[in-house]
Design a protein around this nucleic acid. Structure first.
Lengths: 252, 252
DNA sequence: TCAACACAAATTGTTAACAATTTTTGTACT
DNA sequence: AGTACAAAAATTGTTAACAATTTGTGTTGA
């Protein structure tokens, strides 16, 4: 479904040689397949690869200088965390989450991030541990001001993952990573680019309430942040077919 | 680590031709690789394949009548959800979660399952939807009485997954599946087989409190259930090397 | 008796080639 | 014109073979 997107030039994935792009991903890229996996993963959550784009194996082989077996394994893993869709005999596409999935992801985030905040409030030296997070928010704001959209998106996601990391629970961290990446896909699909209500302010409020040990305040801030994010989305049209028609001013 | 386990005869994985074994797994086994994946997955959480067992590619090819590429992809996915460990140039082993991972998994379960129960309490027609769960608990008890350990373990896990399914959120369901499978591995490693304190009673109490809309009661029942489960574990020795010595009555 | 070394067997990592399927293109027919 | 059918191109699914690494075994020497 939705092959309306053109098979974008994937050469751009090789750009941006992962300077600080290693904020949101997993362990060490020890294997070849891990490298490919991370590379594609980052490209998707950074919105350098948009939902619906076809990921042809041969092209990926060419881009990453590896054999098809390698990209195949990487694609399988990406499919397993719902970042790409794998259609039998048809190939791999960047996933296009629908309305139901969006609801599920955001509901899960409210549950999980609420629980995480609850635990953080019990931690000693919380203020101290919050410092790197504050710096991260500053970088967010800076990236937004200089209109560095990719960095901004990346940091917005990383904020939540770093927050989860403070809870010192690898299961929750991995989960948050997964939820953040899926959220990024959702935003790429349904967010109206005009009014992106500066998430860094909301992030800052979360940190402030957290620092003040204001339980009700933190939970409220997080819930509002997530609800705002979800409310910004627009699910107007059926699918991307409509976009194509709109481009050429055709009646439906 | 822990090659102390013998390379168990994996032929037994082909037995038990998945009659009702499809309780805990995912979508349709459309692909060949999905089939292998599910087969190994089920074998591990059913304790037919124990932690530490080496999963040699060639043997798996022989068992499942497929090529190495297929089992390779399946193993990669299993590694991705921490069911097997993939050591470079050494091969695949059934994972052996450690103490830290155990703590993380159980903590995550308390958080997530608590949130799930909270949502279930808001659902209409809750009593009606609970009926299949009651039946499942009955089957649990029956399996326990007739000493059908595999079915009992399977149903114990399936109970929690089915509970998550009631929340009508695929993200949470997948998460619960993952947590349950990892818990099964943990139990295989550290649970003392003697005193398995009949989880079906605790499951029943959860259902009863849920049916009565007793919020505090449900949360308490679930927390106790999980805590009991975690407390039953014994992390005496360093690793399985010790087991080997114990078997042959050797001083350390 | 034990350690170090070298060789052989087994296993994994990688690549290439072939078969099966789908998608596209071209042509004929109504 | 537009539809239906057929061949061709492109892409995926699968298998086999080769290279690299590790593991096990046996020998030598102190």
């Amino acid at each position: 479904m939705s092959e309306a997107f053109e098979t974008a030039d994937m050469r751009l994935m090789a750009t941006e040689p992962s300077v600080s792009s290693r904020l949101l991903e997993m362990a060490e890229p020890t294997n070849e397949v891990d490298r490919i996996y991370s590379e594609i993963f980052d490209a998707v959550i950074d919105h350098r690869l948009l939902p619906g784009v076809k990921l042809t194996e041969a092209v990926l082989c060419d881009v990453f200088r590896c054999s098809r077996g390698t990209v195949r394994a990487a694609l399988a893993r990406l499919a397993h965390d719902k970042i790409v869709e794998l259609l039998p005999n048809r190939g791999a596409f960047v996933a296009t989450p629908d309305l139901k999935e969006t609801r599920d992801v955001f509901e899960a985030r409210r549950m999980v991030e609420g629980a995480i905040l609850d635990k953080l409030l019990t931690l000693p030296d919380l203020s101290l541990r919050l410092l790197p997070l504050r710096q991260m928010v500053d970088e967010e704001r800076a990236a937004f001001r200089r209109k560095d959209r990719v960095t901004w998106i990346r940091l917005s996601n990383a904020f939540h993952v770093q927050l989860a990391k403070l809870a010192d629970n690898e299961v929750l961290t991995d989960l948050m990573r997964s939820l953040a990446s899926r959220t990024s896909l959702i935003i790429a699909l349904y967010d109206v680019p005009g009014r992106s209500a500066c998430s860094f302010d909301e992030h800052e409020r979360i940190l402030a309430s957290l620092d003040a040990h204001d339980r009700a305040g933190v939970l409220d801030a997080m819930n509002h942040h997530l609800q705002d994010c979800e409310r910004r989305l627009r699910f107007d049209d059926d699918d991307t077919q409509a976009d194509l028609r709109a481009v050429f001013n055709l009646k439906r």
